[in-house]
């Protein structure tokens, strides 16, 4: 379980003026929940994720994962990056085994576990390829395998499918659902796509910008497993209604933003 309370962060903007990235966020992520976080750019969703990962400091508030306060990166959490962040000189096998190697897992064991995960993400046979030889979708499969290899309790995903084309993105969504349904763990998934947020999430956290705050948390009462019939799910009434509702809210936020153009965007 992840508990976030009173989380605040103010950055200094490029012009020296303070920019409030997070203005007091309270959020509880349940064990084995798939939580998606949606919001306009500048709402601080990636900042919040990096704080959970222990990669980013905050000014006030508290984050605990499994009851332990976050003070830095830890083996209970692993992250999947939007730009994949693969080591370009290392093979697929070595990339997937990277986290295990840092932890001092022996070569035989880490190779076995890496091979296992490479097969799970559908890349068997590509073990000795380098990232430059793979498509974007395949590279992110490596990123997911690397994150799962260290057997985390929490998977933090920062717009993981934002850099791949639409068709690949849909395939990756289905594959991620299938992997997660077979082997549940807590997932916090950042996205700017309403459809993706609804398709994947048990709940969708809608954040608003300037300052970054939670605007609404929407339950997604769609049946699981979802990976077997994504098409049917997307035609269901609930899916359409929730997506439409999220878009209404997001559009309002964009209009508010247009009304206050002097405010500066945060990432």
């Amino acid at each position: 379980m992840i508990e976030i309370s009173g989380l605040r962060k103010t950055f200094t903007g490029q012009d020296g003026a303070p920019v409030q990235a997070l203005g007091g966020v309270d959020l509880t992520v349940r064990d084995d929940e798939f939580l998606t976080v949606l919001g306009p750019s500048g709402c601080g969703k990636t900042t919040m994720l990096k704080m959970i990962a222990g990669l980013q400091t905050w000014d006030a508030g508290e984050i605990t994962v499994g009851g332990r306060p976050v003070r830095g990166p830890g083996p209970d959490r692993s992250m999947v990056f939007q730009n994949f962040a693969l080591l370009p000189w290392a093979t697929v096998l070595d990339n997937v085994a990277f986290g295990l190697r840092l932890k001092g897992v022996g070569k035989a064991e880490r190779t076995e576990r890496a091979r296992d995960l490479i097969a799970k993400v559908g890349l068997a046979g590509f073990e000795s390829k380098r990232p430059g030889e793979l498509s974007g979708g395949m590279q992110q499969r490596v990123g997911i395998a690397r994150a799962l290899a260290v057997e985390p309790q929490v998977l933090l995903m920062d717009e993981p499918f934002g850099a791949v084309d639409e068709q690949t993105r849909r395939l990756l969504q289905e594959e991620l659902l299938a992997i997660w349904e077979a082997n549940r763990l807590t997932v916090v998934f950042i996205t700017h796509s309403m459809e993706e947020a609804v398709l994947l999430g048990d709940r969708v956290v809608l954040m608003s910008a300037r300052p970054g705050q939670i605007a609404e948390i929407v339950d997604v009462p769609l049946d699981r497993p979802r990976s077997s019939d994504v098409g049917g799910l997307e035609r269901s009434r609930e899916y359409v209604e929730i997506t439409a509702h999220l878009w209404d809210r997001l559009r309002d936020m964009h209009e508010e933003h247009r009304a206050a153009p002097s405010e500066q965007a945060v990432r």
Binding site: L55, P73, G74, P75, S78, M79, F81, A85, G99, K103
Partner: peptide
């Protein structure tokens, strides 16, 4: 920077 951040996230 993203490679350094990635490695830090795995506890390097």
């Amino acid at each position: 920077a993203h490679l350094v951040e990635m490695a830090r996230s795995y506890g390097a």
